[in-house]
């Protein structure tokens, strides 16, 4: 591993963590979605550095589309999508911070204490081609199952999101939420 690669991994790694953190620190929903995309792009760049170009680029390609859809959904549903007013919409804040820090410490301990076998990708290997042969050879069933699962989800998602349900209109009797903060929230 060259110094340039190490440098890239550290820079992109810090970028991924910081932009991931900023997702929950911004008031603008569009910014939140694109900070998350920045985090994914940074991780994709690390994957490219780690010899898996195809997966890294596919991750970036998927996320660009998904985050724009996410931004549009947030603008549709949030009360303050543009972030023109500061807004905090959190609950069980302390527990959440504790859980986040706790899971980081746990995983970090494992990463530092455990003794991993060193068996790196051999030089001159072509992981992209190997992945292709794996997907359409030995592990074709897994690959096809993922495809069928995606098809099932498409149908299921349309059924769940549709306006007409088994119990009549989905929005029958719906009410706007009160503007006063509800009890028990944050």
């Amino acid at each position: 591993m060259s110094a340039l690669q190490t440098f890239g991994i550290v820079i992109f790694g810090v970028g991924a963590v910081v932009s991931g953190w900023l997702v929950f620190r911004t008031d603008s929903m569009v910014r939140a979605a694109y900070w998350l995309m920045a985090s994914f792009v940074a991780v994709g760049a690390i994957l490219v550095t780690l010899d898996s170009q195809f997966l890294g680029l596919i991750l970036i390609l998927m996320m660009a589309g998904e985050m724009t859809i996410m931004a549009i959904f947030m603008v549709m549903f949030m009360m303050n999508p543009a972030g023109l007013n500061p807004m905090v919409m959190v609950h069980q804040h302390r527990t959440a911070i504790a859980a986040g820090v706790g899971s980081f410490l746990l995983l970090a301990t494992v990463a530092l204490v455990a003794d991993f076998p060193a068996d790196p990708v051999p030089l001159g290997a072509d992981p992209t081609a190997e992945l292709g042969f794996e997907l359409l050879g030995r592990s074709m069933l897994v690959f096809e199952s993922a495809g069928v699962a995606l098809l099932a989800v498409m149908i299921g998602a349309v059924a769940v999101a549709g306006k007409w349900g088994r119990f009549g209109d989905a929005d029958a009797g719906s009410v706007e939420p009160e503007l006063e903060p509800e009890e028990g929230g944050s």
């Binding site: 995309m37 596919i58 970036i60 660009a64 589309g65 985050m67 724009t68």
Partner: peptide, 8 residues
């Protein structure tokens, strides 16, 4: 990937 991010 580059051409899809044009959307962003």
């Amino acid at each position: 990937a580059a051409m899809i991010i044009v959307m962003v």
